[in-house]
Design a protein around this nucleic acid. Structure first.
Length: 501
RNA sequence: GCUUUCGUAGCUCAGCUGGCUAGAGCAACUGACUCUUAAUCAGUGGGUCGAGGGUUCGAGUCCCUCCGAAAGCACCA
């Protein structure tokens, strides 16, 4: 701690701290009897009764001070916003000089009454001021002005991304739009949870530390359990455990889980991220599509009070029935050829003819995926379900009821990004074993993201999984589209950073 | 992992083809001011220019290595 930044600004504040103590003021008292939020206090004032002078005790962080000799104005900020406070020496003759030792960033409690200044700002006329926490690190001061058109203009906003992510608490104090995005994130999650709970589906918890990882194609983090002396993997997906619970007799389960993937980081990838997975027995992917659509419409409304939102200047509507398109149809339209039944070599040539850079030894499914990602996905701006994927790309999805070679699967795309992935779950144990063995073969052939055979999972499927629909939603990416942020770091409180040195 | 760009005061930023003691605004400090609001006015202090090395008479500026970040690419969700 002593190696902390000890610049002159910090030194100055530590001295002030000592002076306050000498004056008999405890800079770190235990509590404060707050009666109103700043927002509530502001609402107490009415122009019909300007002399009502409702009495309040509000608390918050000092964000601005304007000293004018024997009177001062300061603004305090709490969860609901800011309110100006007015303090004059006549009211607090013994205390007023101590206020000189208060700084921007200190947390105070203010007792007083609500009034409106001559300049028309609703304020608290201070009758007692309590220091609740002396801050010794200065916070960045972004000044705000309301221009003639009523727009808030911010000067010198705290903008350095590295500092904002490393000191997120400062970012949250100083940048209201950052706070707002995280409130919206919380609304997304709480709305989903309520939606599922109301329908009788049960929230569950499954292991994060797993002896065998599965449910997705990804590279895991590995750790070691000392007492058992075995490697354990941090989960990459919930799927296999949640299906075991459906086997066990629960008919609707969901989990909001942190997953971990040991891969590169960029605007859309953080090594730990949040997924929601839900499984409902006796349903299929068509039912799940309807549910997903209703769910997202509900979530959007909870966040925005509207069924539309704007991302990067483009309006996204959750109101209309979402478009549903078949993957193979779209690839055929965009690439000019039906890839079903085409040889790997022909699909490779097709990729090359569209100038898609792919490895020459990539498997058929990978090539088809590339065609889709390059030619179709970027155009899926409005919420769109892409349905019926090739079986090679979906080792856990049930074979399509009518179309050979396909599975009953959909992915939901919004603003060109995949937000949900779902299928009619594969419950044919013979088929499932073959699919996993295929994965194992790919793995043996050098694909280190292919799945591992999980014998206990197969045992569960052999025990009997009812017909079941399952879906995963990438919460971070959904929140990005709902908060108009194009970087995942802006919807994670503490995105992964390299340590400073 | 690769490529490019960036790192100057607590914060936001200037600093030219290398050239006097590295600047500004906000914040801080001293003083004035009892309804201000980007308060105002007068004055003061504050820097290992990310770190280390090199070239040069001279480096914030040019070169190299390292650290950190951002954007793009690759991989993935």
């Amino acid at each position: 701690m002593s190696e902390h930044q000890h610049n002159d600004l910090v030194q100055r504040r530590i001295e002030e701290l000592h002076h306050l103590r000498e004056a008999g003021i405890n800079p770190y008292p235990v509590a404060f009897g707050k009666t109103h939020s700043t927002g509530e206090a502001r609402n107490l004032f009415s122009d019909e009764q300007p002399d009502a002078h409702p009495v309040v005790a509000v608390a918050g962080r000092i964000m601005a001070i304007r000293r004018m000799g024997k009177a001062s104005f300061f603004q305090i900020q709490d969860e609901t916003g800011r309110i100006q406070c007015y303090l004059k020496k006549d009211d607090l003759p013994d205390f007023y000089d101590h206020f000189r030792l208060f700084d921007i960033g200190d947390i105070v409690g203010v007792e007083g009454y609500v009034f409106k200044t001559r300049m028309g700002e609703i304020s608290v006329h201070t009758t007692a001021l309590h220091l609740l926490c002396k801050s010794i690190q200065p916070i960045p001061i972004a000044k705000e002005e309301t221009d003639a058109d009523g727009n808030t203009v911010i000067y010198d906003a705290f903008a350095d991304k590295e500092l904002r992510y490393r000191h997120r608490y400062v970012d949250l104090i100083v940048n209201p739009h950052v706070r707002k995005a995280f409130v919206q994130r919380s609304t997304v999650i709480s709305t989903m949870r309520r939606y599922f709970d109301e329908r009788g589906w049960m929230e569950v918890e499954t292991p994060i530390l797993q002896p065998i990882y599965g449910g997705a194609t990804a590279r895991p983090f590995v750790t070691h359990h000392n007492a058992l002396n075995i490697p354990l993997y941090l989960r990459i997906a919930d799927e296999l455990y949640l299906k075991r619970l459906i086997v066990g007799g629960f008919e609707g389960v969901y989990e909001i889980s942190k997953n971990f993937r040991n891969e590169g980081m960029d605007k859309t990838h953080n090594p730990e991220f949040t997924a929601m997975e839900i499984y409902v027995a006796y349903k299929d992917y068509l039912w799940m599509m309807d549910m997903a659509e209703d769910l997202l419409r509900t979530v959007c409304f909870a966040v925005h009070g509207s069924h539309t939102t704007t991302v990067g200047g483009t309006e996204i509507s959750y109101a209309e029935p979402f478009r549903r398109i078949r993957m193979m149809d779209e690839i055929a339209k965009a690439a000019g050829a039906d890839v079903m039944g085409m040889s790997r070599e022909d699909v490779l040539a097709l990729c090359r003819s569209h100038k898609i850079d792919v490895a020459g030894n990539a498997p058929w499914s990978k090539l088809v995926d590339e065609l889709f990602s390059s030619l179709v996905q970027p155009n899926l701006i409005q919420p769109t379900f892409v349905i019926d994927y090739p079986v090679e790309m979906s080792p856990l999805a049930k074979a399509h009821r009518t179309d050979a070679g396909l599975v009953e699967r959909f992915e939901l795309y919004i603003n060109g990004a995949e937000v949900a992935n779902a299928f009619s779950e594969l419950n044919d144990p013979i088929d499932q074993r073959q699919r996993l063995e295929q994965q194992a073969q790919q793995r043996a052939d050098g694909d280190d993201e292919a799945m591992v055979v999980d014998e206990d999972f197969l045992f569960a499927i052999e025990t009997g999984l009812p017909p079941t629909a399952g879906m995963g939603i990438g919460i971070d990416r959904l929140v990005m589209t709902l908060t108009d942020n194009d970087s995942i770091r802006d919807v994670l409180f503490f995105p992964q950073m390299k340590p400073e040195r």
